[in-house]
Amino acid sequence: MTHVNMPIVPVEDWLEIGGVKLTSRLFVGTGKFPAHAVVPSVIESAASQVVTMALRRVDWQNPQENILNYLTDGLVLLPNTSGARTAEEAVRIARLARAAGCGDWVKIEVIRDQHYLLPDNFETVIATEILVKEGFTVLPYVSPDLSTARRLLEAGAAAVMPLGAPIGSNRGLKTRELIKILIEEIPLPVIVDAGIGRPSEAAEAMEMGAAAVLVNTAIATAENPVAMARAFRLAVEAGRLAHLAGPGARTEQAQASSPLTGFLHEALTVD
């Protein structure tokens, strides 16, 4: 299908979640930055529209500022339920985050394991069922597992967020084969969350057909977080465009790029 007038950028390429049409497919986390003050430049550089944050007890000894004071209007706030070990705790944190002014979106994160911070898919499904009924737009963070994703779909989750590698590890798409299965089988946006450490890995996730990626540590721990945010933005856009463009087939043996008429070969053998 060759046609000289193919549009480079599709006319409409929204990512619709919870009734919101997003043009950016790079969600950014706000943890681990040297200071809250860096966050606005990072979000601008990443051109992100969805931003995550966490709820914690006030530390009376050390001054803290509400992260919302650093975020511009118009961003979709995605509080996480980090710290929750059970569905019940996740539900409680989600309600508190909504009361704190975060809106209806929530990233469910239920973790018991302290070495690898791997999510408890079972508790996550239960929390999702409860919070969807309460009107939340629920984005659950999960280990990439098809059965879990099917249950989340049935429960009314707005997306599924499988991990690429353990949180904060910067190790990339270690779970790529399982994420591919979710992308193929689950009719929900699949957002790769956790583990992406380099823009090239974000591009790969997008080429595979991920709907978006969520990046925090890779940007926050870069020497220049603002530059890295831009690098991720470009990578996510490139990967998305590559996915839409439809990559060619892979083959074992070479497939010549130039015509194989071989006149030079003939000329050489004449001598």
Binding site: G29, T30, G31, K32, F33, H36, V39, T52, M53, A54, L55, R56, R57, V58, Q64, N66, I67, L68, P79, N80, S82, R95, L96, A97, A99, A100, G101, C102, I167, G168, A194, L214, N216, T217
Partner: peptide, 27 residues
């Protein structure tokens, strides 16, 4: 959860339990 509007009129009593929370950076 206690609505902000009720903070001025809620008198604290012996044995009450409070959680005072803030939104911080997180992933």
């Amino acid at each position: 959860i206690l609505e902000r509007e009720l903070w001025p009129s809620t008198v604290l009593h012996e044995g009450d339990k409070l959680e005072v929370l803030v939104l911080l950076g997180g992933g």
